[in-house]
Structures are given as structure tokens and as C-alpha cells.
Design a protein around this nucleic acid. Structure first.
Lengths: 337, 337
DNA sequence: CCGCGCGATGTTACCGTGAACATCTTCCGA
DNA sequence: TCGGAAGATGTTCACGGTAACATCGCGCGG
């Protein structure tokens, strides 16, 4: 029987079922060519003993860790976190396990994370890389496994899976222009952020293509505080402010109201992401929804396909969705300061 | 040399350093009694070959998985998520790895999570259990490992690590009473939630102990939407509303403002948790801060101590902290509807 | 001068599984 | 009736470490 401190092994099951351990292995791995009766005996023995396959031994014997590594920025933002949950669920459903490390924005921390994961011989990596730096550090270390770049939104990166950032920006600009706004100012996310860059670039192109007034693009760091602070530099003539994410919009609205302005009567403010709180901000926020769960599942699907040698799914950017709430009003209604 | 597809093994290192594989093992495990010169040769060989210890083999040989399981509710709430990051960091720092499963509120999902973790022979479990149900399901399955109950706040549970809920409530009630409020209404979290229960109980006791007006306790589900909805049932005579968390406070404020009330001029509203957005809600929210990182680190410390057979750290509840912002005003200033 | 003990290192036997190969049975056609 | 192929199962070994025990050499005390 089993040794003390360890559970029953295949041999215990085999002994009980009156077969060899290899037959047990075959039953577990669903090999063809097992007599139904034998299979039943084995399954019964497994059940009676409460046997569980030893993952470590299996992984040692096969040389496969059955593990997908995940690197996630240690922010509590809605986007990465919901994507992570979806990744974890998808990985588990695929019969693998997800090993996660949360990492700060320092190169050293990223290296440590990757090192940690490689030491556990992960078979693939989901890289939630908000910044170019993270992508660069990881690429420099050339991990010998397939990598899905999640939420980077950068199509130049191989295996990138994300929501179509440009399309999201287009939807929002359409909406604002449709309301008659011509003086739209953008508060982008930090310089280091790939998504911030993409959104800002697309915004600029849209403004120029539509021959709207070009106002300087302000820079925040995704936090509500930075939106609050950015208010100081907002052009007084701007009738609409397009924030790079919802948190900054929240901070901006706070600052604007502090200054005695009303949203949206005096100024229209919009965000990006559609975090849960966006429904109940004052006023409720018009924003662009990204399906963080869907991109995550797609990334895992792609990686699993790569591991199994199956055909790759289509990883082109997923559609974004405009969510109109109450923080936007027609430009005509806007009283200038 | 190493087989194709696998990295170098201890034998490769041993061969290169001109020692036995066991000496390599001893160097790696920092055994005493290795000649400094030998140790150097081994370290050099490890470095040259880029050798990494095979975690699976090690775990098979020792019978220890070096893994701590984590069960987290799949909500993107600030509390659990920040605690999780802290857990992950602490576990990694302790030389172990954290294996996480996000689980929904259904018993079946909890069972599956636990099963998944046990199959990977975790050595300990961090259980972020918001509901009594999760605790019950896990306890019923009697996992044979030490369990830290994180954020349940229930001192009746063994190994519970959390912020002192009652103290947090007391701080807030003190604050409100200090402002002259006597008609305070509480919107608690869901029936199933342990923390909601603790906060509501303590609130009730405080109200009775101070002989304040007893208003019915309303029930939400932690979401902003439920706070919004609860506004309908708020007693018109209440001058202060104590929400069980910040999200519900956000929803409540939204509804109150929709009804034409001003916060805090017409009604005082407070929350609990101090989520990042609380600084920039309109008005900025008075709330109770919990140090989610600290509890997480403490939980891991306790588990590691249990695994190493060391002395247990003190796991009594951590202090909560009152954060006064602008959503509270003296009761005298409150105009009745 | 010899043997003992101890420090430093080597040898061997596992840990629990899967892969490759061996063996045994059975069934079918010549 | 017998040979052979195919199906079902058993045996052996390898995976890469750790643990227990064995060995070797050296210094020191009797």
C-alpha cells in the first residue's frame, strides 16, 4: 500500500485491480485496446483508493510540465484582471495549469518573473504586457516557448491578441463628431504604454483626417489622479475630452466639477474600457467596451493549438463596442467658459 | 550532454565540474561541508551550461510540491485582487510557487477548484472565501493541508487572517456620531458574505449601544448597481448612509443625485474598503481602509511557518483605518427632505 | 606507527509515471 | 490443425532529482 505521507500510486491501483501499473496508465490516458471489463476494474480500484495521478512524476516522465505561464502587471485594473480570470479558466479547461506571476514595471522584476516561470519549464506564455519595455525584456531573453501577447494591442508583435484599438477610437471619435464636437482633446495613457500609443496615434490621425481642431495631446498614467491633474492643462476651448481610460475620466470629471464645470453640459468627457464603475459615475460614463474575457480565451486557444500542433485560430483584433451613457452631450448645448 | 528537447541535467553539470551529481545537489541545497573550491567549480559549470534544476524531478523525489494553492473569487474587486498579488509575491519570495484558481460562487466550482489544487498536491491553501458557503465546501472536503482563511474576517474560523472588521465599523460609527448623526442607515453586503454579516452585526450593536435610531438594515450584493437600487428603500429620515463597501456607495450616490439630493449637504454617504476610485468619486468618499497587502503577507507567513514547523506568527486581526474625505458632513448641516 | 574519526565526496536505490519493447492470448485462414 | 497477425497486457527502463549509505583520505591521539 501507499507509503506514509504519500497517496496511493499507480502500483497500488494496479495491485488492487489485478493488473500492471502500465495498464492503469493506459486507462488513465485513454489508450485504445483496453478490454472494457479491465478498464472497469481499474476505474473501480482508482475510485476505491481515491487515487490521483502524481503530476510531478508524470511531468518528469513526459518532459512536459502541462503548465502555461502568465505574466500580469500588478495593477488591480479591471482589464488585466478580468483577462487573467478568463485565461485561468481556459487553461484549466484545456487540462493544463496556469502559473501566474504579477510583476511591476521594472525590467528587473520582469526578468525575475520570466526566470521563475522558465525554471518551472512552462510550455507557453501569456504575456500581458502593457508596456513596450516588458515586451522587449521578454523578447530579449528569448524564451523557447510560444508566447501570446495579450492586451498589448500591437499588431506588429507576433501572436498579438487584443481588441481592435483603432476601431475603438474611431467609434468614439465618430460619436463625438456626430454630436457636433470639433474641439476634442485627448488625454493619453503613459508614454511607455503600447495601447496608449496606439489610441493616441489613431486619435491624431482621425482629427487630421476630419480636419478638426488639433489640440495638444496630454499625458496621464492611467490613474484617476493623473486625470484629475491633467485638468489643469486642458484647453479651455475644448468641448469634448477623450480620456485614454475610464479611471482618468473619473479623475478629470472630479477636477472639472471642482472647477465649477458641469459634465456634460459644460464639457463632454468620455473614457475607454467600460469598467464596472462607469455605469455609476456622475454622470455615467460614455466609453468604449473591450471584451477582456474574449481576448483572453482566444490567446489561450492559440497557445493550446500551438502546443498540440493544431491549426492556429484567427487572432485578428476583436471588435470594440461603443457604450453611450450620459457624459456626452451635443456641442451646441455646450456653454463656453 | 543533454538530450534533445530537455535542458542540461545535474549529471551534465557534474561531468563538467568533474564531480558526482550528488555533489551538485549538495551545492544547490547549500549543504555544509563542501570545499569552497569544489563549490566554485560546480557553480561555474552550472553557469556555463545554463543549468536549471528540474522542479518536477525534485518534487517527485522529495514528495513535496513546493506549491501553495490559492482560491480566489472571480471578482475584479480591489480587495481580493490586491491581496492576491501580495500572496503571489510572498509565496514566490519564500521559494515556493502559488497556484491560483478563480472560482465562482457555486459549490460545484469551488469543489472543482479544490480538486484541481489537490491533484497538484499543494502543501497549503490560501482561501479567499467571501462566503460561508465556500468555507463550508472546503471544510467538508477536509483537505489535509494547512489553510489560511483570508479576508473572511471570521475569527471563529481557524487560521483566519484579516482586517479587524468590527474595529473598522466602530471607527466609522464614531465618525458619523461625532458629526451628530443619529439616524444612520446601513446597506450591508449579501446574506452569504461573512464580512457583510460581521459589519452588519457590529453596526447593529453600535447603534443599540449608543441608543441611536434603529433603521432597517438594507441588503445589497457589493455591486454599485445594488447600491443604486437600494436607494429606493432608504429611510427618508436617515441623515447618513453607511454602505458595506465603496462600490455600493458609488451606486447609492448616483441614485441619490438622480433624485435631486446633494451629497453630503442633503445626505452623508460612506463606504468601506477604500478602493482607488474612492478619491475621485463625486464627492470623494469617506471610507475605511483595509490593508489588503498586509493581511495577505501575514497569511503566507503563517502558512510557511506551518510548513517549516516554525512558530506561528500572531494572526490576530489587523487594524482598520478611517479615511475622511468629502462625502460626510455634520448632521446639523443636513436639510431634511 | 597505527587505527580511529571525521570531513568530503561517490554510489546506489528509490520517487511515480510513460515509452518502448516483450510476451501471451486469441482468432482466423490456409 | 497449425502458423501468424493482431489485440491485450506485462516488463523494463528512463526521466532528474534526493536520501541513505559507502568510501576515501587525512590528521591526530594512543
Amino acid at each position: 500500500m501507499a507509503k506514509p505521507g504519500r497517496g496511493p500510486s499507480m502500483h497500488d491501483v494496479a495491485a488492487r485491480a489485478g493488473v500492471s501499473h502500465q495498464t492503469v496508465s493506459r486507462v488513465l490516458n485513454e489508450f485504445p485496446g483496453i478490454r472494457p471489463e479491465t478498464r472497469q476494474r481499474v476505474l473501480l480500484a482508482i475510485d476505491e483508493l481515491g487515487y490521483r495521478r502524481n503530476v510531478a512524476a508524470r511531468s518528469l516522465a513526459t518532459g512536459r510540465s502541462q503548465t502555461i505561464g502568465v505574466i500580469i502587471p500588478n495593477t488591480t485594473d479591471f482589464g488585466p484582471v478580468s483577462s487573467f480570470y478568463a485565461v485561468e479558466a481556459a487553461v484549466r479547461e484545456a487540462g493544463l495549469q496556469a502559473l501566474v506571476t504579477a510583476t511591476s514595471d521594472e525590467p528587473r522584476a520582469v526578468e525575475e518573473s520570466l526566470d521563475f516561470l522558465m525554471a518551472r519549464s512552462i510550455e507557453a506564455l501569456v504575456l500581458m504586457a502593457p508596456t513596450r519595455m516588458v515586451v522587449d525584456v521578454v523578447d530579449a531573453l528569448k524564451p523557447p516557448v510560444p508566447i501570446a501577447y495579450l492586451l498589448t494591442g500591437d499588431e506588429r508583435a507576433p501572436w498579438s491578441v487584443s481588441v481592435h484599438q483603432q476601431q475603438g477610437v474611431d467609434l468614439m471619435v465618430d460619436h463625438l463628431v456626430g454630436l457636433g464636437h470639433t474641439r476634442i482633446q485627448h488625454i493619453r495613457g503613459p508614454e511607455s504604454s503600447i495601447e496608449a500609443e496606439l489610441r493616441a496615434e489613431e486619435f491624431g490621425q482621425q482629427i487630421r483626417a476630419r480636419r478638426l481642431v488639433e489640440l495638444p495631446i496630454l499625458t496621464g498614467d492611467w490613474t484617476a489622479q493623473s486625470g484629475f491633474d491633467a485638468c489643469e492643462q486642458v484647453d479651455p476651448a475644448a468641448t469634448a475630452i477623450f480620456c485614454g481610460n475610464d479611471q482618468m475620466a473619473i479623475g478629470l470629471i472630479h477636477a472639472a466639477v471642482n472647477k465649477g464645470m458641469r459634465v456634460p453640459e459644460d464639457v463632454t468627457v468620455v473614457g475607454f474600457d467600460d469598467i464596472p464603475e462607469a455605469v455609476h459615475t456622475l454622470p455615467p460614463l460614455t466609453t468604449v467596451r473591450q471584451d477582456f474575457g474574449a481576448v483572453a480565451r482566444l490567446a489561450v486557444k492559440a497557445l493550446v493549438a500551438a502546443l498540440e500542433g493544431e491549426e492556429m485560430p484567427d487572432t485578428s483584433p476583436l471588435p470594440a463596442q461603443l457604450v453611450v451613457r450620459e457624459s456626452t452631450a451635443p456641442a451646441s448645448a455646450t456653454a463656453r467658459r
